[in-house]
Design a binder for these strands. Structure first.
Lengths: 227, 227
DNA sequence: ACAGAGTCCCTAACGGCGTTAGGGACTCGT
DNA sequence: ACGAGTCCCTAACGCCGTTAGGGACTCTGT
């Protein structure tokens, strides 16, 4: 009878709104704490109502997956292919890192959403423009995606642990180094000796290192005059 | 009163046995279907009893994580660093691919188990022997791990879907190509045009392609006489 | 104006989940 | 003989994803 908040005429609960709500719950409670009931509460509705808009929790996670990829702006179209590809990977990584558990959400999901499709389209276009063949460009895109995803996945778990335990990222790295040093030196001589190198350089540097190696490898695919 | 199966004297339920049981449940029901209750049933015990041997489900997953890494034999120490590194990555990937949902289990787990530590130790040893500096070797190990993990993660999800729907891997790839072709050609010209290249070559070839690019990039780190 | 279809949310309940509390049976050192 | 320790149990907690069925509302055709 009361006019309530909305007039209850139009939907007021779209799939887009669900994705945004899921995003907020994810940020607050993490992936493990993301339940249909909480997402429903976030939009002011009971859990069963979600099933009108979404077949499954799985489908809601697909929506969330695409929502997570929204807002990654493509790097400027200036500079050679190397700096553009580097820009892509850096932004991709930064974007995943910025949202809690983002890598885990994206991890096992096969169907790319519209947002990711647009990024792929743009990236493939630049690769073709740089002189890569169609077959090579497709593989390169796949390679870079696998690297970024795999890297952030390993990188983001300790961050989650650090948030949970209240310790900082530095402390987590130190603890990891300590674990390596504590191993039996006769069984793991290299791990013990290289404890600092294994945990030392910050993750930005490690990511950049791997990326530069990959880019070096890609350069060899191009005719010499295009680098 | 009856003698039962064992004489109930010694444990008969070790953490190792739990890990093996979890492995069997994982193979049968997948990661989503792996519950404390099922693992308990697998060892002939009720769920609550597991908490005597294990703090959490999380800790059980750590055990499972290490059990998954058991049995990856290191490649022979013949040939140059390239073939040895390639051997490592191929075996790592093959091993993950062979066990259902293995990539997802390993995915967000930070603490490497003893089995993985041994592999790292051996791999680092070979890298140092090949002429990589300690800092470079550590980064290379990290890079290769991220690539393999990221690749298999993307690769294994469609396989799971294929098992679920009963269709083969070939059909899944064809369906993916069809999805690309069905996109609006004015918005995604490259994706539409490159549908075949994006989904065409089999995953073995795609993995090998990325790996060779990475190895090419790594070669540049070494002084010319060591390749 | 009224019937029907369609939309969107509800309550109630299902079986399953991780986890905890508390207890019972058994083995051992003293 | 006894207490400590080990290893499993039953019972229950609150949460989860999902389904069935229904109620209120708006649109449409006649």
């Amino acid at each position: 009878m009361p006019a309530d908040e909305q007039d209850a005429a139009q939907p007021a609960l779209t799939r887009e709104a669900l994705a945004q709500a899921a995003l907020r719950v994810l940020e607050r409670d993490g992936l493990a704490g993301l339940s249909m009931r909480k997402v429903a509460a976030e939009v002011g509705v009971k859990a069963a109502s979600l099933y009108w808009h979404v077949r499954n929790k799985e489908e809601l996670l697909d929506l969330l997956n695409d929502a997570l990829m929204a807002g990654v702006e493509a790097p400027p179209r200036t500079g050679d292919w190397r700096v553009q590809l580097r820009g892509y990977c850096d932004r991709h990584r930064a974007h995943l890192l910025g949202r809690r558990d983002a890598a885990k959400v994206v991890a096992g999901r096969l169907a790319p959403g519209p947002n990711l499709l647009h990024l792929m389209e743009d990236q493939l276009d630049r690769l073709r423009g740089a002189g890569f063949s169609a077959a090579d460009a497709a593989m390169v895109s796949y390679l870079l995606g696998a690297y970024v995803q795999g890297f952030v996945l390993q990188e983001q778990s300790p961050m989650a642990a650090a948030e949970t335990t209240g310790t900082g990222r530095r402390a987590v790295a130190d603890a990891a180094a300590e674990r390596f040093r504590a191993l039996p030196a006769d069984e793991f001589p290299r791990l013990v000796a290289m404890a600092d190198e294994l945990t030392g350089p910050d993750l930005d540097a490690r990511f950049a290192f791997g990326l530069e190696r990959i880019l070096d490898g890609l350069a060899a695919l191009l005719p010499a005059e295009r680098r």
